[in-house]
């Protein structure tokens, strides 16, 4: 990591944390949001980079009185995911369904990688909205309230949808 003392400030008006501190906190969360959303590490890295580049360019426009830093960053991440989904849909779809056509055998990969492959197979079957909620909750560690704020759903609705999805995933996972 770069020298913390020399790291630029994120925004002098509203968020006085050094950018590097924000980066260290949010990089894994945003990366895992994309990893759970699309199931591919290379794509997750690309979209994480795009998200941070957008955030870095717009950092002067961030205003904490309007939204928390987390909400602001994940709004950018969500928009980046939507852009990737629409503009490069076939590629994204190929990646999402890669596990279905090009399975990794347990013998060839570690158990953890095989578990990831299995999880991605299950997540691929979810509708886009449900998969995004799973990515926000279990990839990005967002609370139901934060997810509700980002998606426009009510907090209880987020809870109900996630409960239903988790029950279905758990059942299939243990099958």
């Amino acid at each position: 990591m770069a020298n913390l003392n020399n790291a630029p400030q994120f925004s002098s008006q509203s968020e006085n944390r050094p950018f590097e501190a924000i980066y260290e906190e949010f990089l894994p969360r945003i990366y895992n949001f994309f990893l759970y959303r699309f199931g591919d590490t290379a794509l997750a890295e690309d979209l994480t980079a795009v998200t941070f580049e957008k955030a870095w360019k717009k950092r002067g426009k961030f205003r904490q009185e309007l939204a928390s830093l987390s909400t602001w960053l994940f709004t950018i991440a969500r928009n980046t995911a939507v852009d990737a989904y629409r503009q490069n849909h076939r590629a994204a779809e190929d990646i999402e369904s890669a596990g279905l056509t090009d399975p990794i055998t347990p013998a060839a990969e570690s158990e953890r990688q095989y578990d990831l492959y299995r999880l991605n197979q299950l997540l691929c079957r979810l509708p886009a909205r449900e998969r995004e909620l799973v990515a926000m909750k279990y990839g990005a560690n967002l609370t139901n309230r934060a997810i509700a704020g980002l998606t426009g759903l009510s907090e209880s609705n987020v809870g109900v949808i996630l409960h239903r999805v988790v029950q279905a995933l758990k059942k299939e996972w243990e099958a």
Binding site: N32, A44, D115, L119, N141, K170
Partner: peptide, 12 residues
């Protein structure tokens, strides 16, 4: 029920 889903997070 949902704890297992957190276990797939990775560090970049």
């Amino acid at each position: 029920d949902d704890q297992f889903l957190y276990g797939f997070q990775q560090q970049p």
